[in-house]
């Protein structure tokens, strides 16, 4: 049986969100959603609403923090930013992701070779 789809997506989504905040600084939920859609190129077919529980989860883990501020159109919006723990996490995840991709590449390469 394949692992539940959500599990895989969750890890990926976390990474994308953290990376987004790293690259673009504090951002509100809408901005993050936009960015996710841009970079994932429809790979992640998500309802934008799905983002919010994920944001809450990251906040509960202490990787991001939030605070109310004014949006581009001068509306009240909640801005999320990366914490120090979040940066560390992003670094760790990036490394492990790279290790994983390298491993996969080798593995798949071997299979093709053999």
């Amino acid at each position: 049986m394949a692992p539940p789809r959500g599990e895989v997506l969750q890890g990926t989504l976390d990474l994308i969100v953290l990376q987004t905040l790293q690259a673009m600084g504090p951002l509100h939920g809408y901005g993050i959603a936009r960015r996710v859609q841009q970079v994932s190129e429809d790979l992640l077919k998500l309802n934008q609403g799905t983002l919010y529980p994920a944001l809450l989860r990251l906040e509960q883990r202490g990787w991001i923090s939030s605070k109310w501020g004014a949006s581009e159109n001068n509306r009240k919006a909640k801005y999320y930013s990366l914490t120090r723990a979040g940066r560390k996490q992003l670094l760790a995840e990036t490394e492990s992701w790279e290790r994983m991709t390298a491993l996969m590449a080798r593995l798949l390469g071997d299979t093709e070779g053999g």
């Binding site: 509100h28 934008q48 949006s71």
Partner: peptide, 16 residues
């Protein structure tokens, strides 16, 4: 209230 406000803000931005 916070949650509603946040989601509403998102919808408003999207609508705009």
């Amino acid at each position: 209230q916070d949650l509603s406000a946040e989601l509403q803000a998102h919808l408003d931005l999207l609508t705009e």
